[in-house]
């Protein structure tokens, strides 16, 4: 058994977890919902094991670094953080419907890592610029932040779907009646963005400490840096609009979706469309 085998199990696991969340919403059987959650917990445990195993394998190969060094490994970690944050939210608010929208993100990240033809999944040694203790702090904080924004985006989508139907009774709303209350969703969008914003700030700060020791500049307007700043500015605007201007509901949900689009561009778009210091993230 090796980490690659476990990770392919994980990919299918997220698929089935997402599928069962959807089925449980459609046929309203709580047993299926519990099954979906059970699968998710098991998959998350295997996923955690696989990441640790890949770490161990890299030591066995005499390379020895945390599995956070290229696009493949970052996608694996991204999926893990999404699952982790979603599991925490499900446990906290006790609703499984968000799973319908959150688990597909974890599955898509895993599927992209596993099935993209240009993906390099070998464990490779670290280039001199990546040999830094700040690597782990930087990548972990950034991706936990990205995952919080991903969950916020899924909740925003749920909010926008449910909003037009709020005048109807729970029975008339059909499936949407099983979504958490609109006020709960609204609050959740905000809470997850606050977490994401804190972690993104921490990620940018640790990245600039690292850049300062590797290149002598804490900020060099490299496209990835700039896009992370653009993302930060969008969420900063959102938080000001909500806290100072009293914006709520649909407007915040849309801003949260725009914010996550910026996250996706920072993560993928910069690697494929622009060039810069972070180009090793592309392979």
């Amino acid at each position: 058994m090796n980490s690659s085998y476990l990770l392919s199990l994980v990919t299918f696991g997220y698929f089935f977890s997402a599928l069962f969340y959807l089925i449980s919403l459609v046929i309203k059987k709580s047993g299926i919902g519990r099954l979906a959650t059970g699968i998710l917990w098991a998959v998350l445990a295997i996923h955690t094991g696989a990441i640790i195993l890949r770490w161990v394998e890299s030591y066995q190969l005499g390379i020895g670094h945390a599995p956070l060094s290229n696009l493949y490994e970052s996608l694996i970690f991204f999926a893990w953080t999404i699952a982790l944050i979603y599991v925490w939210i499900e446990w906290k608010i006790g609703s499984k419907t968000i799973g319908v929208f959150a688990t597909p993100f974890a599955f898509l990240a895993m599927a992209y890592a596993s099935f993209s033809p240009n993906m390099n999944d070998r464990i490779q040694p670290l280039l001199p610029a990546l040999q830094s203790n700040w690597l782990i702090a930087h990548v972990v904080t950034c991706f936990l932040g990205y995952a919080a924004f991903a969950v916020s985006c899924s909740v925003s989508i749920m909010f926008l779907i449910k909003k037009p139907k709020t005048r109807l009774t729970k029975e008339q709303q059909g499936l949407l009646g099983y979504f958490p209350e609109i006020a709960v969703l609204d609050d959740l969008i905000y809470q997850t963005i606050v977490i994401g914003f804190l972690l993104l700030t921490l990620g940018i700060a640790t990245g600039s400490i690292w850049a300062h020791s590797a290149w002598g500049t804490y900020w060099s307007w490299d496209p990835k840096e700039t896009w992370s700043l653009i993302t930060w500015l969008v969420y900063a605007a959102l938080l000001h609009a909500r806290m100072m201007k009293g914006w709520h509901g649909s407007r915040i949900a849309w801003l949260s979706i725009i914010g996550f689009a910026c996250v996706l561009f920072t993560y993928f778009g910069v690697n494929f469309l622009l060039s810069g210091l972070h180009s090793y993230g592309a392979a």
Binding site: I230, L233, V234, A236, A237, H240, A241, K245, V270, L274
Partner: peptide, 21 residues
Amino acid sequence: SVKLALVLLIVLAITSILGTV
């Protein structure tokens, strides 16, 4: 005003794209 802050944050975000392209 908060309005000015919002406008500046958004204008900074949008114009920053230019230098990455």
